[in-house]
Every structure is written in C-alpha cells, then in structure tokens.
C-alpha cells in the first residue's frame, strides 16, 4: 500500500476550482478514491447529482481524466458499457492488448441506494471490471435535502419534516454495503473520509481486483446536515467512533473490521452537532433517541458476528 509521501506525488485527477460547497464530503471522497487508483488511466462515470453538476458546468470540466455523465439512476450501467467497449476494442485490436485501464462510477446515496440500485446490482452481477463508489451523505442533497433510504432514522429532511405529528424520518437506513456483499463480488468495503489511509487502501484493493468492487464512503454534506463547513472530517470520525458507520471490508467473502472501535461513544455525540437532529434532544423525544441508540447497538453486534465467523 502506498505511503502518504507516495500519495502526495500522485496526480490529482479532480482539479480544484470546481463548484462544490466548502466542506463537501463528495470531493474529498473522490480525491482519496482516485489516489488509490494508481498511475493507470482511469475513466470516471458519475450519476446526476452535486458531484456531476458542480464539476462539469459546460464549457468547463474539473476532470483531468476521461469522464462521462449519463443520468441519475444508471452510472453503473453506463460504466459497464464503457468497460465492455474497452474489452471489445481491445479484442478487435483497436486498443493495444497490453493497455491497462481502470473504470470507476461515483453516485450519491440517492443515485445508489434508491433509484440506481437495480442498475448497480445488475452491473455487479455481470462481473464488469469496475469500481462503484457511493458517496453517502444520507439524503438527496442536490435537489434540496429530501430523504433517501440512506437517511438516518429521526433525521429532518425536506420530505421528512418535524412537526406535531412527525419527528423527522420514521424509518431506519437500508444497509447497502451488506446488500452489495450479498452479491458475492470480489471486494466490498465501507470507508469514511475521516480515515484517509483506510480509504485509500480500500480504493487500492478495489481497483486491484479483477471484476467488480463496491465502496460505500461516508461523505458529509454540511449544508444538508446543518453543520459547520469545517466539521465534515470531525463528524465522520465521530460516526466511526459511535459505531454508526463501522469501517470494514469483505474480501473474497471474508469479513474484516479494518478500524477497531474499543469503547463506542454514545450516538448522541454524532447526532448533537447536527442541526438535522436537534429536535431529538427535546424531552418528549427521549424514547426516540433511546431507540436510535438501540438500533446502532443491534446493527453493531450483528456485524461483529460476521467478523467472528469469518
């Protein structure tokens, strides 16, 4: 695995000057993932969303590497087509047989957990040699903070509001990383922008495998989370320390926790700094807060059993 010093010498494939917000987790995730891609050419595909809109405002492009955006729900299918073209053109002798290329698709949680799940599942099942990266900020941020199936229970969102009859999102999160692990693909991992070494190492592994790989990257949205723009990395670290976002990988079916958490912090430490959860701290929502802690505990314990049986 590359050292920090080596990584600093690698070319940044996403140029500065893009229009993403200060503190946006998506661009941090992209840069860390692409550092893990090594020196071979990388083709980037991107779902419709903040990342795409803010990096490709015509006639400008922040991408110093081939880039394609098609639509919202189909980044995986689109990149599977690009990868198929590469194979066919190599077979036809139009691309040199020894040329190596990497293929990566980025999508937010809306484009991945929800509308793009079928496209992602299909591409992974077909075994394309590609990496799919979900930058998970837990809502439809580009359209204005609407709830997705990745939005945490109790979070305020513009389509899961807080009022006399409702306290934010009623449902828990879908566990996409485990859904992807159930595809029995060579490599699946959950990572966070706060743990750069863990993330770039996972990206290196994901790019190194032959066949499909999936990374779910915790990538805060300060705007949507009602959080100061300089707290993105800090809140990501707390997400890991509370067990809200466990860091692990599933390599050839073997589940391994990559960052151990010995004394899990209470979930309040993750919720409290974020304005989207502030209603949870009213006395009348004490039960809901306890329920959220118990959800985290249960998911954590279930996951530990996966590691134990590995």
């Amino acid at each position: 695995m590359a050292t920090l010093k080596e990584l600093t010498h690698r070319e940044d494939r996403l140029a500065g000057g893009h229009r993403l917000c200060a503190g946006c987790g998506a661009s941090i995730a992209v840069r860390q993932v692409l550092l893990g891609a090594g020196v071979e050419p990388v083709v980037v595909g991107c779902a419709t969303g903040c990342l795409e809109v803010s990096t490709t405002i015509y006639p400008y492009s922040s991408w110093k590497t081939p880039f394609i955006h098609n639509a919202f729900e189909n980044a995986a299918a689109t990149v599977s087509g690009v990868e198929s073209a590469f194979k066919a053109l190599q077979r036809a002798g139009k691309i040199p047989a020894d040329k190596k290329m990497k293929f990566v698709a980025f999508g937010g949680d809306g484009g991945t957990y929800d509308i793009g799940l079928q496209s992602l599942s299909g591409a992974m099942e077909r075994g394309h040699d590609m990496v799919y990266v979900c930058y998970d900020n837990g809502a439809y941020m580009n359209t204005g903070i609407q709830r997705s199936s990745a939005t945490p229970k109790g979070a305020w969102a513009t389509t899961a509001q807080v009022g006399a009859a409702q306290q934010g999102k009623l449902q828990g999160r879908k566990d996409l990383t485990q859904i992807m692990a159930a595809h029995n693909i060579p490599y699946v991992a959950q990572a966070s922008i706060s743990h750069w070494k863990d993330l770039t190492t996972k990206a290196e592994k994901a790019f190194a495998v032959e066949g499909p790989a999936f990374l779910n990257v915790f990538a805060p949205c300060p705007r949507g989370w009602r959080l100061a723009y300089n707290k993105s990395v800090e809140i990501s670290k707390i997400a890991v320390q509370t067990g809200f976002w466990p860091l692990y990988e599933v390599e050839d079916g073997v589940w391994r926790q990559t960052v151990k958490v010995h004394n899990r912090k209470p979930i309040e430490e993750f919720l409290k700094p974020q304005g989207r959860f502030k209603h949870l701290f009213k006395p009348e929502n004490a039960d809901l807060l306890a329920e959220i802690q118990s959800d985290v505990d249960r998911a954590w314990e279930q996951l530990q059993k996966r590691f134990e049986t590995a």
């Binding site: 083709v43 098609n70 639509a71 087509g81 053109l89 496209s119 591409a123």
Partner: peptide, 19 residues
C-alpha cells in the same frame, strides 16, 4: 443487462467510449 433502461444506458457508455 437487467433492464431496457440499463440496455440503453450501457449502449450510451459504450458508444461514448468509441465503440
């Protein structure tokens, strides 16, 4: 592919790729 939406999506990716 797993749907016609993905069929045309993959065709678009492949055609943009130069195939």
């Amino acid at each position: 592919v797993e749907s016609e939406h993905s069929a045309m999506s993959a065709c678009i990716g492949a055609s943009a790729a130069g195939a």
